[in-house]
Design a protein around this nucleic acid. Structure first.
Lengths: 277, 277
DNA sequence: CCAAGTTACGAGTCACGTAAGGATT
DNA sequence: AATCCTTACGTGACTCGTAACTTGG
């Protein structure tokens, strides 16, 4: 269970290939094979099917544990380094796409107090931002989510981070301007269970969070958009590929898109600032 | 950050001695010294003050991480073993002292279905039971706590376990029979903030949980009882050393002790069954 | 000066790379 | 036949124990 064995195992299991993992890790294929063999010997269980390379049941289980263990090890290292290192004159900040607008405002505030502060900004997926903050790659992260107003903060994924809410925005359903529901002044999620949805986990509200908030398991998407660009998502909406839920603050007027306030259930788009505790 | 280095570091930091840790770990003092030196070199920070041996700030921080990491590694190993191993014909069950009475009932039920089942029962502190279940030493644990009825389950300490509530009991304040409040038919916690308390984290309701439930930070104890024996705790109560809160079901009539129902706030003594997910 | 931690050094072990050996498509 | 993983083997690095050394109370 040494970390380097786990690291290799994770790389192989995720990439589905011993040789590819060897390349990425800077080892030879042979070493990777030996790592996996050692791990399997120590645990007394096959972890990977070969040809094709795919985790066994035990391997899948180990994969979850291993990722958590490695993350925590990185977090520990980052934590110690943070504690020992001199306070840097540069701050690395990350944000998920829908939280990025808030970032500008927050930065302006910090800039007012520390005019010489050098800031690095990175926009990435929510999970990636949280991970980067726990490993110390980023000092601060702004992450958004869709929650009921009373829900507790969601971000401290592994109990390794602290979070404070910085903003809550109302949500709007976006749909093509010629959509039958486009003229409505308010919409309830329940009306939209069987509509055509676009699954845009980064650029829009993730359907999973909507399902949690609405308590249903509908919202089956017909199209998935993996980008982070809101304008591109709106173009898809305008073209009639489906509808998406966005915070109203993220909505500039876009041609061919109608935005209807979401009235029910009571959910909000919350932005949280996460940081090391 | 190899696990054996962390293990040694934890042993040294907890025991306050290199040589003692060496003995417990089966290494020489020299090896232990080298382990710690290696860890400090890798992290670039002193982790322990010597003479006396005491964690530095960085060491204290690492200690928290290390314990979590090691626990998770053990949990992973146990998880895999569980998944691979043949279903045993013996079940190891643990319980915290105040949950133990429920254990008898639960076991009777299991025994009815599987008469040949061999069962091992261990009674230990709540934290120890939860840890033993996560590391696979125990198959099942029964753990009690004091919570508001609406609170979520509390036991899955690290997200590594599943829990189901199995019982909720009302609580009673126990006090010496000649105590001025002994004749009351009900008591509110708020009335008792300034009373003399016995801190009996295993044998009684932990004061910390009472504080959480009551939303105060009173309940300053004058005596701490670290045992797990309810009768012994009641003897202390009868002798006037202070009062304690217990589930009413745990109270046989004890000489010299009065039990007054706890009416406010609405808290219950909940017993949860924890097990691997 | 004694208890306790550190450092020096050598023996055994382990991990990696090279290279040859299967197996599967 | 080509690709991909496994196995054999040698070298270099690492780890631990013995033993001498150092330091603080």
């Amino acid at each position: 269970m040494e970390p380097h064995l786990l690291r290799t195992f994770v790389a192989v299991a995720r990439g589905g290939s011993f040789s590819a993992a060897a390349g990425r890790l800077g080892f030879t294929q042979s070493a990777v094979s030996q790592h996996v063999a050692t791990l399997e010997a120590r645990l007394g269980v096959p972890l990977l099917h070969r040809r094709p390379v795919r985790p066994t049941d035990a391997g899948a289980r180990l994969l979850e544990h291993a990722e958590a263990i490695l993350l925590r090890i990185d977090a520990a290292r980052a934590d110690i380094a943070r504690l020992a290192g001199a306070p840097a004159d540069t701050v690395a900040v990350g944000a998920s796409p829908l939280a990025a607008p808030r970032l500008a405002a927050a930065l302006a505030e910090a800039r007012a107090q520390l005019p010489r502060l050098y800031v690095t900004v990175t926009v990435a997926g929510r999970a990636r931002v949280v991970e980067a903050v726990t490993t110390g790659e980023l000092d601060l992260g702004l992450v958004d989510s869709v929650v009921a107003p009373s829900d507790p903060l969601r971000a401290p994924s592994l109990g390794l981070l602290a979070a404070v809410g910085v903003a809550e925005d109302p949500l709007a359903v976006t749909l093509a301007a010629d959509h039958p529901l486009a003229a409505r002044t308010g919409l309830r999620l329940a009306e939209l269970v069987d509509a055509w949805w676009i699954d845009a986990p980064d650029a829009g509200a993730p359907l999973g969070q909507l399902r949690d908030a609405a308590g249903t398991d509908g919202f089956r998407p017909l199209l998935r958009y993996d980008g982070a660009d809101v304008a591109a998502l709106l173009a898809l909406v305008a073209a009639g590929h489906g509808l998406a839920v966005l915070p109203r603050t993220a909505l500039d007027e876009a041609p061919g898109v109608a935005a209807v306030p979401l009235t029910e259930p009571r959910v909000v788009h919350r932005t949280e600032l996460v940081h090391a505790p």
